[in-house]
Design a protein around this nucleic acid. Sequence first.
DNA 1: TTAATTTTATACCAGACGGTATAAAATATT
DNA 2: AATATTTTATACCGTCTGGTATAAAATTAA
Lengths: 201, 201
Amino acid sequence: MSTAVCAVGRPRSFDMDSALEKALEVFWIKGYDGASLSDLTEAMGINKPSLYAAFGNKEQLFLKAIELYENRPCAFFYPALQQPTAYKVAEHLLQGAAESMADQNHPHGCVIVQGALSCSEAAASVKEALITKRREGELDLCARLQRAQQEGDLPDNVDPAVFARYLGTILQGMAIQATNGATQDELLQVAHLTLQNFPKK
Amino acid sequence: MSTAVCAVGRPRSFDMDSALEKALEVFWIKGYDGASLSDLTEAMGINKPSLYAAFGNKEQLFLKAIELYENRPCAFFYPALQQPTAYKVAEHLLQGAAESMADQNHPHGCVIVQGALSCSEAAASVKEALITKRREGELDLCARLQRAQQEGDLPDNVDPAVFARYLGTILQGMAIQATNGATQDELLQVAHLTLQNFPKK
DNA sequence: TTAATTTTATACCAGACGGTATAAAATATT
DNA sequence: AATATTTTATACCGTCTGGTATAAAATTAA
């Protein structure tokens, strides 16, 4: 494990997890291209050799920050998929997104959506990693909707792949809205309007 | 006018409009932060002093490229608002977005959405300009929906501001989807599903 | 106490960044 | 033909980029 302490040698003088949290915040606000190593080391309270020894390089630091992002206690996507009905899954996804993306306790929007969207060639591999994450999320949502259909929980005339893409589109759009300055209430209105149109039997 | 030819002095050896088109394409793919002056001058086929003489600086070049983007013949947003009914407005917006954002003839997505979303401090003013453009678009759509309501064209129980935000969220989400690699057909399915839920009298 | 090990801080690397000074080249006017 | 004007190409500016070599500092093991 990367956070394991070494018995021998000079002990690390910073906490890797909280340093990674700071790095995540910088990437979240500035994106991969826009976040410089100076931005990162300053926010993390360490210097560059410590960063490289602990996290590898900028790209690996970003990927580890994304991992932290997905495993945060307040991450909403995968927990929402565990709701018992398709409607409740959609409800938790949409309300979770509305609450999370305009939360005042951390940067607005979604780092997986915005971290490397239009970017330099130096960020190409990171961009691909984020695209893969977004598509995986949509595939997992699609699988959840397929299960719901088998359970008689979602009308048969609904195409799970299309509906998953539709919901994914709205979730991703909410990230932009949050960057636009939309409030939680405004995003919740979008969530409710979407749920209002949820396919009925 | 900035494209006016000067009678006196050495004539410009490149076409400003087509150079601006090339710049737009670079910004579209790489974003403001990710597009370097070398990227731009190479694509435009000119050198830096020519770029600065003709367009000011990187920021002004970006803003002029965005202006070109909005005034392209294939721009769909404002033409869609001129459709005679609220439904047709939504239809043209959604289908226009689906066709435009996954068009193989130019970069995918939307430069107004992606050009400077999460970005460095150097891009802050450009980011603000794009946020303003996105909000203005939504306000204009809201005004169009209000008119539709007055014309008895949109049910009274619909809040135009919320519905405009909902549509804006989907359009912006489609830009992300296009970057994810979604095809025109896949985006059209999202458009159709959205229209299927269009509020009825 | 010494040796081995790891992290720290500083200082540095080559290259890229946005932007510009300079002077030659190309035109219209006189 | 000479002059004024504008654009061109080259070469350069200081600053920042991601990344690293080096050596001192801090710890455990012997």
